[in-house]
Design a protein around this nucleic acid. Structure first.
Lengths: 158, 158
DNA sequence: TCTGAAAATGGACCTTT
DNA sequence: AAAGGTCCATTTTCAGA
């Protein structure tokens, strides 16, 4: 599953995770490689799925979603088809940025973004109260998004 | 803080959040605008901070970070400088993808990525056990990353 | 690694509302 | 003024030698 990456690949990945807009010739001077080599490596990293995709990161506040909420959900039954159905529901909800199926005191952890508490209450009704398989859930309202990203460390370690 | 967005802006934001690599002329045909208009709007969205940045999303598994963990932390004291110091520590840790300062039963929620459990244990020592201001913490190990993204809904609602 | 063609970006300028 | 469209220059990407 994992892929072999050399020091150049790692540097490139670190760069493009931070900023995917810097041109390949600039990347070349930063990592000490020709533009063409950078081009080939980035293409290969994308082909191999190391780079999953390129995305614009938009500011939630600026588009009227100032509220970030962490919800934890415990299910009634862990029957496969019930779980799958819940996963699909969570995946499809546009306000759910992230959903992790976890082991421990809870079964799902969700990161949500919402316009206001009213919208979150609505979501709560749709996602939790009207779902028979939700035993209980807990809400943690974010007061500050201290760090937000999907960056993966590639610097030295594996 | 929020910004006024028309239907064109919203469509463009939806597109580039999903895939930032589609060229502006293609975006133009999709949203019914000339290439130049798309160019101008994207530039303005970036200048206004609506688009925070462009980033490559890399697959954690492929680079040897198959483990995703959600940690919740309760602090001993909420004294400002102690909190700030913790926030800085969390921000700087490369394995911490996200850190939310929350209200409720816990004070911080962290999303971490790690090579293996041993690395997580090390992090645990560095971040939690050796920090006097950590009263307790809880670990939820992700078995499945059902949905992972930073996408913000821009379709219809504000 | 270099060179050059094709593609994409972004500015100039004019037109519309 | 604010925003769109067309055209053109510049920059960037990317393949072949």
């Amino acid at each position: 599953m994992a892929v072999t990456l050399d020091a150049f690949d790692r540097k490139l990945l670190a760069e493009v995770q931070r900023d995917a807009q810097v041109p390949q010739n600039e990347l070349g001077t930063r990592v000490n490689l020709s533009t063409a080599a950078v081009n080939r490596r980035l293409r290969r990293l994308a082909e191999d799925g190391v780079i999953d995709r390129y995305a614009a990161i938009v500011s939630p506040e600026k588009v009227g979603c100032p509220l970030t909420i962490v919800s934890m959900v415990e299910v009634e039954s862990e029957q496969i088809d019930l779980l799958d159905s819940m996963k699909r529901t969570f995946e499809q909800c546009p306000q759910i940025q992230q959903c992790y199926y976890v082991a421990g005191e809870w079964d799902f952890v969700l990161i949500l973004t919402a316009r206001d508490m009213e919208q979150y209450n609505d979501l709560t009704r749709q996602l939790f109260f009207s779902n028979n398989n939700v035993k209980r859930f807990k809400t943690l309202v974010s007061m500050s998004r201290v760090k937000v990203g999907l960056g993966v460390p590639v610097d030295i370690d594996g």
